[in-house]
């Protein structure tokens, strides 16, 4: 029942995204054929090229042609690169996804201990320090953070080489190294959000009766916090992290520009600039699909954390 309902919503959302990606971008004025041929092209030349690119005729027929292809995993050919959309995306996706995954990992690794520490030190120096710093982290835009990181760790200290991305398949260690700085830049505001949120939910949970029961057994403070309180406090935090993953993904499109990483971000910019309809549509669809999958994973971890939902 759960799976049936879940798959149905998944399909429905995908169909909606499909529609939106196609029509939203077509509303914007501009034409790829005239973009390619330049100002002097005649009307005949333009319609000839349109026919070749498969963007002629009524819009709804174009849509059905495209959607029919998508269902068979055929996303069409890129206009700008004259290459299949799918292979273009496949070459760029690993960079963006590993960047997003890395910054999520950094976010959790740093934010969870800090949030717990702030809650435990409530009102004392450590709490004030963490809260103040996270306020600052929230105010700094990622791209600016990226530039500062490049200046300090790349150009001055020379700990990281900037602007040379090594693919995972070539050298995993160097790939990891070239993604570290942008991942940190992306993670900083996320860390700030999660720390503040976790601190609040931990403090809320600490007033609950079951905490008093746990203490009445003689458990150590660490045990009470990490075993009893954290698990309950994480339930709402997971939702926030899930919603923010979309944000991380969007952020990585931007930060790729700052660090000149060959990811989806730069490909998307080029595609939009050239009115490369098939490529833009394919990429937006894929990004939406990723976000939907992430939400699904969030839902699963939610069920794992909260037995009330799991056992319903």
């Amino acid at each position: 029942m759960y799976w049936a309902r879940k798959s149905f919503t998944l399909l429905l959302t995908l169909a909606f995204v499909l529609l939106l990606t196609f029509f939203a971008f077509r509303i914007i004025p501009g034409n790829p054929a005239s973009a390619i041929l330049g100002m002097e092209a005649s009307q005949e030349q333009i319609s000839e090229l349109e026919q070749k690119l498969g963007i002629e005729g009524p819009l709804h027929l174009q849509f059905f042609r495209w959607a029919g292809g998508v269902i068979q995993l055929d996303f069409g050919h890129s206009i700008r690169f004259s290459e299949p959309v799918l292979s273009l995306i496949a070459s760029r996706l690993p960079v963006t996804l590993s960047l997003a995954a890395m910054s999520l990992a950094i976010t959790l690794l740093v934010a969870l201990p800090l949030g717990i520490a702030a809650a435990r030190a409530r009102g004392r120096f450590a709490d004030l320090f963490i809260s103040l710093t996270s306020q600052l982290g929230l105010a700094i835009p990622s791209f600016w953070m990226g530039i500062v990181l490049i200046l300090v760790f790349g150009l001055t200290l020379k700990w990281f080489t900037v602007s040379t991305f090594v693919p995972w398949s070539e050298n995993a260690w160097l790939a990891l190294k070239s993604l570290t700085l942008p991942a940190i830049a992306l993670a900083v505001p996320q860390i700030a959000i999660v720390v503040r949120y976790l601190r609040t939910t931990m403090l809320e949970q600490m007033n609950e009766d079951y905490v008093r029961t746990a203490k009445s057994k003689g458990l150590s403070n660490a045990n009470v916090y990490y075993k009893h309180v954290l698990r309950n406090a994480l339930i709402p935090v997971v939702t926030v992290v899930g919603i923010n993953f979309g944000e991380i993904l969007a952020g990585s499109l931007v930060i790729e520009g700052v660090f000149t990483l060959p990811g989806m971000g730069r490909l998307l910019m080029t595609a939009i600039g050239n009115r490369d309809y098939p490529l833009v549509q394919g990429m937006v669809l894929l990004i939406a699909f990723t976000v939907i999958i992430i939400n699904f994973v969030v839902d699963l971890s939610y069920r794992w954390l909260d037995p009330k939902i799991r056992l319903k």
Binding site: D209, Y210, T213, A214, N232
Partner: peptide, 15 residues
């Protein structure tokens, strides 16, 4: 050791 007034909230819901 102690038994509390409200058994509905005195146990940890996630364990």
């Amino acid at each position: 050791s102690m038994i509390f007034q409200d058994p509905m909230t005195s146990l940890n819901p996630t364990l």
